[in-house]
Amino acid sequence: MNVFRLAGDVSHLVAIIILLLKIWRSKSCAGISGKSQVLFALVFTTRYLDLFTVFISVYNTVMKVVFLALSYATVYLIYMRFRNSYNSENDTFRVEFLLVPVIGLSFLENYAFTPLEILWTFSIFLEAVAIMPQLFMITKTGEAESITTHYLFFLGLYRALYIANWVWRYHTESFYDLIAIVSGVVQTIFFCDFFYLYFTRVLRGRGKMTLP
């Protein structure tokens, strides 16, 4: 554990809580892609199956359970509790175009051809692209509420901090995890365009982020 890793986990947690609180307080999930949130729930589910097989640390177990619970709570709020506010007509990204290549890749490129390793690899690859339905929705509608953009900022920050964590671990422990690093870098690149808009538009005091 290093400061980049801890800060990354904290910003991931902050992102998820921001989104959950926004939906809960406004009693609306307008502008939120339910598809992205289902994909994130699937990411956590397939990655944290090792909760049943190995014990790593109290921190590790608690964070995994919290991420799982919060992601399922978010999906519940979007599709059940506040489903009337869900903009399904704008959440039209074809998820199968992500799932099929990701499933195929996880069978081809993994550390061991075992169910748990393949599912872990699937979760790493899927996480890299899971935000695409949300970014697609923003592009389609041409705008995003500022709270939604804060959520995306912390989610992108988490990925960027994990890269710093990997650089740190490579230098201090000679440790590297190539599948996680390549996917993490790809995932962070998806956020670059958003980061630019976030800093130039949202933080300069407009309520909403509108696209040019």
């Binding site: 890793r5 090792d50 790593i56 590790n60 550390y111 872990w120 964590n165 000679s174 190539l178 996680a180």
Partner: peptide, 10 residues
Amino acid sequence: GLSINPKDEL
């Protein structure tokens, strides 16, 4: 090195 088990990162 490559591959890690157990996987400590989240």
